[in-house]
Design a protein around this nucleic acid. Structure first.
Length: 497
RNA sequence: GCCUCAAUAGCUCAGUUGGUUAGAGCGGCGGACUGUUAAUCCGUAGGUCCAAGGUUCGAGUCCUUGUUGAGGCGCCA
C-alpha cells in the first residue's frame, strides 16, 4: 500500500507529460529557448503595426514583444486591414534571427489569422501614453497596456512568493472567514452583511432591527482582519498565515487606501516582538528579491517608464533613486529599528520641528502622523524604519503591555512613498491583563469569549503582523495610486466591473 | 470627512487684462512608402469649452452651487 502511494507521489511530482498548450507557443518560452529556422505558431495582441510590414506581438507571457514580419503581397488586403492596435492575431511562420535592430528574433509569417479586430474608430485605447485615470475607466482593456500587464504579472509574482515563503518555512495557510460575527475587531468601520429587506426590516419590541431574523441569526459584517481567528490557528498549528480579502468601510480618499484589499497576516506561537520584527523584515526582503530575480524585465520596464515621466518634474519631486536601485537598496540594508520614544526624540530635535514646519504636534502619547513618518523614513534614516513600543493608549486592546506599563509591544514598519507597510504586535497572553485592557477600551468580554479562552487554556506568548498586499505591490511596481495595482479597485464611490 | 487644484476635439494639453471664426500634438480617415521600433511623409475631418444659474454690451475666461477626477491630510494595511 505504501509502495502504491509512493508511485502516485512520484508520478505527480515528476509530471512527465503535463498538459501543454498545443495550439500555440508562448512568447516567453520562445524567447527563452528560440527554435531557430523552425515553424512556430504564436497568438497574441498587436502592440504596434509598423510600416505595413511589422507586427509587435504580445501574448501576456512576458513584458517583451515578438516581431512578426508580414509580406503584404502574401496575404489578402482584407486581412491586412484588420491588423491594428490591440487586434488579436495568430501567426504561423519561421523563427529567424532578426535583420533589424531592437530585437534578436522575429517570425516570417506564412499563415496569418485575425481572431478579433479592434476598430480604431471605436476602441478606447490608443498606442500612446494615456493617463492612469483614463485607463482606470477602461478597466476592461487596461491590462493590455505595457504598464498594467507588468503590474499584474508582478502582483501574481508577489502572491506566489508569499505562499512560497511561508510554505518553505513550515507555516500553514489558514483561511479565516470573510463574513464575521465579531462586532469588536476594532480595526475600522465595517460593511454590514444582511439578507433583510432594507425598506421593511423586522423590528424588535424596542424598535431596533431584529437581526435574530437575519440569515445568520445575528448581525454580521465583512471581515476587517483575520488576526483574531489566525491566533486560534497559531495556538494549535504553531505557525500560520492568512492571505485574503479584507474590507474597510472607512471614507478614505487617498492613494494608499482601498475599501477591499488583500492582507497577509502571519501569526506565530512561542514568539515575541523581536521574532516578529525579524520575520517581517526577512519576509519583505524575500518578496522584493523574488521579483528582482524572476521579473527583472517587468521591473526594468516600469523603472524606465517612471524615469521618463519624472523628466518633466522639478528635481525636488523626483525619486531620490530609480525604482530598481531602490529595491536593491532595501534588500541590501538593515531596516532601522527604534522605539516610539526614540522616534519622538528624533523628531523633536529635527530641523522641521524647531522651525515649526510640522503641522501636527510631536509629544509623547500622541500618534505619529504622515509628515513625521515621512521625515523619519525619507530624511533621517533614508530607509525602511521599524518603530516599536507605542503608548498603550493609542494601540489596540490585544497588544501585549510592556513591563513599564505605559507602552505595548507593537511595531509598525514604515516605507518610503507608502508609509505604514506593516502593523503588528506581540499579543497579550496574560488573561487578567487582557481582560483589564478590554474593559479599559470598552470591548465587551462576552463577545470575544472564545478569544479569552485561548488565554485561559493552553495560551502562550505569540505574535504576528498584518501586511497590506497592495501596498507591497505599489512599492515594488512604483505605481503612485493603489487603485492601479488591484485589477478591480473598490473605494468610496468606486465599484465598477 | 477636511484642505487645495482641475474639467476645452477620441486621447494629452494650450487658450494672454473678458472681445469677432476655438488651437496644437497624438489618434482617426484618404494617400505614399519593401527593414520598421510609439516608423515616417502629404492631405483631411473632428468641439453643447462638465452641468445649472448669475455678472456683463459681450464669458472657454469672472462669481455661486452641483457633479466628477487628482494631490495632500485624517482613519489605517
Amino acid at each position: 500500500m505504501l509502495k502504491g502511494w509512493q508511485d502516485i507521489r512520484a508520478t505527480y511530482y515528476l509530471c512527465p507529460n503535463f498538459v501543454q498548450m498545443i495550439t500555440r507557443t508562448e512568447i516567453a518560452d520562445l524567447l527563452k529557448k528560440p527554435t531557430l529556422n523552425e515553424d512556430v505558431t504564436v497568438m497574441g495582441w498587436v502592440r504596434a503595426w509598423r510600416s505595413n510590414r511589422f507586427i509587435a506581438l504580445n501574448d501576456g507571457s512576458t513584458a517583451g514583444t515578438l516581431q512578426i514580419v508580414v509580406d503584404d503581397s502574401a496575404f489578402p488586403e482584407e486581412t491586412l486591414k484588420q491588423i491594428g492596435f490591440h487586434a488579436s492575431v495568430g501567426v504561423t511562420g519561421t523563427l529567424v534571427e532578426s535583420q533589424g535592430k531592437g530585437q534578436d528574433y522575429e517570425i516570417i509569417a506564412k499563415e496569418l489569422t485575425v481572431f478579433g479586430a479592434a476598430d480604431p474608430n471605436e476602441y478606447p485605447l490608443q498606442p500612446k501614453r494615456q493617463t492612469m485615470e483614463y485607463l482606470r475607466e477602461q478597466g476592461q482593456f487596461r491590462m493590455r497596456t505595457n504598464t498594467f500587464s507588468s503590474v499584474f504579472r508582478l502582483r501574481h509574482a508577489l502572491a506566489f512568493a508569499v505562499n512560497q515563503y511561508f510554505h518553505e518555512r513550515g507555516y500553514y495557510y489558514l483561511h479565516t472567514p470573510i463574513v464575521t460575527g465579531n462586532d469588536a475587531e476594532g480595526a475600522g468601520e465595517m460593511f454590514r452583511v444582511t439578507t433583510l429587506d432594507p425598506a421593511t426590516p423586522p423590528l424588535t419590541e424596542d424598535g431596533t432591527v431584529d437581526f435574530n431574523e437575519d440569515f445568520f441569526g445575528k448581525a454580521t459584517n465583512l471581515t476587517v482582519s483575520g488576526q483574531l481567528q489566525a491566533e486560534i490557528g497559531a495556538l494549535a498549528l504553531g505557525k500560520v498565515y492568512t492571505f485574503g480579502p479584507t474590507f474597510r468601510a472607512e471614507n478614505s480618499n487617498t492613494s494608499r487606501h482601498l475599501a477591499e484589499f488583500w492582507m497577509i497576516e502571519p501569526e506565530i506561537a512561542f514568539a515575541d516582538i523581536d521574532n516578529n520584527m525579524d520575520l517581517a523584515e526577512d519576509f519583505l526582503k524575500y518578496l522584493i528579491n523574488f521579483c528582482l530575480y524572476n521579473y527583472a524585465d517587468d521591473l526594468e520596464f516600469l523603472d524606465q517608464r517612471i524615469q521618463q515621466a519624472e523628466k518633466q518634474l522639478p528635481a525636488a519631486q523626483r525619486r531620490p533613486m530609480p525604482l530598481v536601485e531602490m529595491l536593491r537598496f532595501v534588500v541590501e540594508n538593515d531596516f532601522a529599528r527604534i522605539t516610539y520614544t526614540e522616534a519622538v526624540d528624533i523628531l523633536r530635535r529635527s530641523k522641521p520641528y524647531k522651525k515649526g514646519k510640522f503641522e501636527f504636534p510631536v509629544e509623547w502619547g500622541v500618534d505619529l502622523s504622515a509628515e513625521h513618518e515621512r521625515y523619519l523614513v525619507e530624511k533621517h534614516f533614508k530607509k525602511p524604519v521599524i518603530v516599536r513600543d507605542y503608548p498603550k493608549t493609542i494601540k489596540a486592546f490585544y497588544m501585549r503591555v510592556n513591563d513599564d506599563d505605559n507602552t505595548v509591544a507593537a511595531m509598525d514598519i514604515l516605507f518610503p512613498y507608502i508609509g505604514e507597510m506593516v502593523g503588528g504586535s506581540q499579543r497579550e497572553e496574560r488573561l487578567d491583563v487582557l481582560m483589564q485592557r478590554m474593559t479599559d477600551m470598552d470591548v465587551h468580554h462576552d463577545e470575544l469569549d472564545w478569544y479569552l479562552q485561548l488565554r485561559k487554556f493552553g495560551g502562550c506568548p505569540h505574535a504576528g503582523f498584518g501586511l497590506g498586499f497592495e501596498r507591497m505591490v505599489q512599492f515594488i511596481t512604483g505605481m503612485g495610486n493603489i487603485r492601479d495595482v488591484i485589477p478591480f479597485p473598490r473605494a468610496p464611490r468606486l465599484a465598477d466591473f
